[in-house]
Amino acid sequence: MSNPYEVLGVSPNASDEEIKKAYRELAKKYHPDNYADSPLADVAEQKMKEVNEAYDEINRMRQKGKGTGSTSNTAGAGGSTYYSNGSNSQFYSVRIYIQRNMIQEAERILDSTPEGNRTAEWYYLKGMCAFRKGWNDQANSYFTTACNMDPNNGEYRAALNNMNSQQHFNYGGYNTGNVNNTGGMGCSCCDICSAIMCADCLCNCARGC
C-alpha cells in the first residue's frame, strides 16, 4: 500500500484535526451518492476504500487509543445497493450488462424487445444505457417516460432526480467546498449558479474559506 499520508494529501506532521478534516473532505468527494448511476461508480468506490484504509492506517500508527479508529462500517456503505431491487425482473440480464459496463450488449437485448413488452422498466433501462454512454438528452426523455408510466417507482424517480440535479449544478461537487486546500477555491454557502451570478458574494465567500 502506498504512503497513507500521501493518499490523504497531508504531511506526516499534520495534526490529528487536519487529518480528520482531509479525510472528511475526501470521503465527501468520493461518496457513492455523487456517483449514483455513473459509469465510474466502481472507481469512486475503489478510491473511497483507499482513503478509508489510509485513515485507519494512520490512526493505527498513531495509536491514539481514543476509539477514533475504524471507519469501515460508516463511510463507504451503500455502494453495493445498486440494482439490488431488480433481481427478479424480466430484464435481469440487461441489468447485469449495464452493471458491467457492457452497454452494447444491454442495448441489443433491449432493442430486440417487441413493442408490446416495452414496460416502464424497459424505458428506464434504455435511459440508463444512454446515460452510461453520455447521451444525456436521450437518457432524460427515457427516464421521464419511465416515471410517467410508473410514477410510484423509487428507482426510476431517483434516476430522474439525479438528472435534474446534474442539470442544475447541485451535483458534482460544485457546492461542496472540497477544493479549498488549493487556495481559496471552496465555497460551501452557495451553489455555483448563483455564485456566478453574484460574483461579489462569491469573492467574499471564497476569501473567507
Binding site: 465510474l40 444525456n136 442544475h168 449544478f169 458534482g172
Partner: peptide, 16 residues
C-alpha cells in the same frame, strides 16, 4: 441544462 449536465459529469470524472 444540457451544458450544465456535461460539466457536472466531467467534474465527477475530474475528481477521480
Amino acid at each position: 441544462q444540457v451544458l450544465n449536465q456535461s460539466l457536472a459529469r466531467a467534474y465527477d470524472a475530474y475528481q477521480l
